[in-house]
């Protein structure tokens, strides 16, 4: 445990040094010449924008998870505490759909790189279908919890189950909006548009939300 913490700290230090310290140790007052390191961007802005956005979502979910764990803590709860409940089995099937959706988007992205328009169309359709199936499955899970004997909104375990799955689902819906526009464009096209980054960005977003779900699902199952 201590060694892994040390390794992580070391890697973080190297990363911070590489990204930040080296750049911020320049002495701008000494040289007066055009900087040759700044030319046209090497990455599309949309890609950088997505990564920044993922940082924001990470902060959002990290705070939700922290609130979840703090609310579970009996030291924080004043009065009746957390009452755990069995999570619906359909969540496992939903997880499978989310994994398949991620794989399908990766497949679509690979097809785009190789210029295979038919595979790209199939991959996009499968990626979207799996997410829709996941969301339908989540709604079924909600219904099952609502009809169960243990259902009580005052139980924070139930409240957090709805809240966190809803926030995750809303992020997927936002992704579906972008996916819908991209799929329509691809469907009408005869060949792959190599300049577009939308499929790649959707793929990254799908993978990211899969990761969030796996963490969330693990948290729900363990409590």
């Amino acid at each position: 445990m201590q060694i892994s913490t040390l390794v992580i700290a070391l890697l973080t230090a190297v990363l911070v040094w590489t990204l930040l310290v080296r750049r911020l140790s320049a002495k701008p007052w000494i040289q007066a010449e055009a900087g040759h390191d700044i030319g046209p961007a090497s990455q599309p802005a949309s890609k950088v924008g997505l990564w920044v956005f993922l940082c924001v979502i990470t902060s959002l979910f990290a705070l939700f998870f922290t609130a979840y764990m703090m609310r579970m803590d009996p030291h924080h709860a004043a009065g009746v505490a957390w009452v755990p409940f069995d999570k619906p089995a359909i969540l496992w099937l939903n997880t499978l759909f989310l994994i398949l959706g991620s794989l399908a988007m990766q497949w679509a992205h690979a097809a785009e790189l190789h210029g295979r328009i038919d595979t790209l169309k199939a991959g996009m359709a499968a990626g979207g279908f799996c997410i829709i199936a996941f969301l339908v499955g989540q709604i079924i899970a909600w219904e099952q919890v609502r009809n169960a004997d243990f259902f009580a909104m005052t139980n924070p375990a139930v409240g957090f189950f709805y809240l966190l799955t809803a926030v995750h689902g809303l992020h997927l819906l936002g992704g579906l909006w972008v996916w819908g526009g991209a799929t329509l464009r691809i469907w009408r096209a005869d060949q792959v548009n190599s300049g577009s980054t939308t499929v790649e960005l959707c793929t990254v977003y799908w993978h990211y939300l899969l990761l969030v779900w796996l963490l969330l699902f693990g948290l729900l199952l363990s409590t």
């Binding site: 750049r23 900087g35 961007a41």
Partner: peptide, 12 residues
């Protein structure tokens, strides 16, 4: 991060 003109390093 992405749209600084040529020569505009972070430390400028």
């Amino acid at each position: 991060l992405q749209a600084r003109c040529r020569g505009m390093t972070l430390m400028r």
